[in-house]
Design a protein around this nucleic acid. Sequence first.
DNA 1: AGGGTGTTTCGGCGGGTGCCGAAACGTCCG
DNA 2: CGGACGTTTCGGCACCCGCCGAAACACCCT
Lengths: 239, 239
Amino acid sequence: MDTRRAPVAGPDLASVARPLADRTRASFCMALLDGRAWTATELARHAGVAASTATEHLNALVGGNLLAEERQGRHRYVRLAGPHVAELIEGLAAVAPAGAPPPRSLSAAGRRRALAHARTCYDHLAGAVAVAITDTMTERGLLDWGRGLRLTGDGEAWLGRLGVAVPAGTRRPLVRSCLDWTERRPHLAGAVGAALCRHALDSGWIARVGTTRAVAVTAAGRDALREQLGLPEDLLPPR
Amino acid sequence: MDTRRAPVAGPDLASVARPLADRTRASFCMALLDGRAWTATELARHAGVAASTATEHLNALVGGNLLAEERQGRHRYVRLAGPHVAELIEGLAAVAPAGAPPPRSLSAAGRRRALAHARTCYDHLAGAVAVAITDTMTERGLLDWGRGLRLTGDGEAWLGRLGVAVPAGTRRPLVRSCLDWTERRPHLAGAVGAALCRHALDSGWIARVGTTRAVAVTAAGRDALREQLGLPEDLLPPR
DNA sequence: AGGGTGTTTCGGCGGGTGCCGAAACGTCCG
DNA sequence: CGGACGTTTCGGCACCCGCCGAAACACCCT
């Protein structure tokens, strides 16, 4: 019965960590880190487990307030419960070992390459392109990494010229650094990271690849990213 | 044998979350969140488990790179592996339910009250006093919560007058918000939070209570905190 | 209504994990 | 040297947890 507990300790970390302490559930979370909602079967197939198993895992994750669910007809859609969960997972990933051994099949290799090049990470961009964007923004003095990450005045003006609405009045940090797990270097997150990603999607600079979390730079995006940010050619699609 | 895994997924979250997914190990971590090094037996007694059990748990936490250990003679000292682990635990605590039911014994109640009043949280201050400090700093315009937390110019000047050296050249954010698990409201963390805590200890404003993580406001601290920050009287020791 | 499909429930199985106490092992100190 | 003390190893036990398939259920569509 376990009566001996009389901890002066605070919140019950274990109850939050437990749902994440399983390879399959962790794999669900990594998939959901693209910020979209997945159905139970999609996640089951993604992780290679039976649908019934996926159900049980989703119950654990939803019950632990890590995922939010939304029922639509016979579908069960789940997504991360909020930015705080995405940041929690980032925190875990930052401590975690590299993982992901080189892929076996050719198609898997292609899929992985697409992901490593550009993808969404919750509500902002990740991958080589995102890291390059962050780098060039730093070089041009739009971001300052002096003590913690900061958006400079130039950065704010640049966003204005671009027509990116910077959300105000929110408690969310304007800019935040998020460790990119393919590049192992930080990319831009926070309110500005999210707004920039939304702008890139809205303006057709990037587009989702099928139903995956990978995104591709479009022809319009190539011109815009080269012109606005001077991104290196080898990251952009050939003319 | 588990051969079926072929995840495109990234880092292995589960291997990091697993060590934290146990009440006893979590209790160790909450204790270590005071930033100090504890011996194996101290932690065992704190959590109410056998020494042998504590050893196994510590192996798991150290092996998962969450704790750093230091052997001194027959003692095994452990502490959090770094600020990133402290922040990870904060992230978990922010999602976790309140926990900690009201204490049974009178002495436990006293201990808990001391902790709730003022304690260290890794390298900065926590508890009612810390939250009050954060609040008054905000009221006086030293901190700005507009969009994310920011140290104002006035804040920087105020620290200078106080003689608090603000570490420069580091990548660590100057100010960061950390959810206080007794007050359920944020208090000040980050480089400035740490510097302020160190200054308070060095100047004798506060002192550790025995060997616990609780701290008490000294007579000198009472005057300083009232004068420099206008902290409400009911949080300060009576004259 | 009825078939197809996504999801859930239920047993049952195998393995992993946390716990303990006893004994062994080191280190410190008198 | 020898006792005291902190730590570790080792069995052994109980229990929890993740997995599956089959069957039931719920919903959509024709």
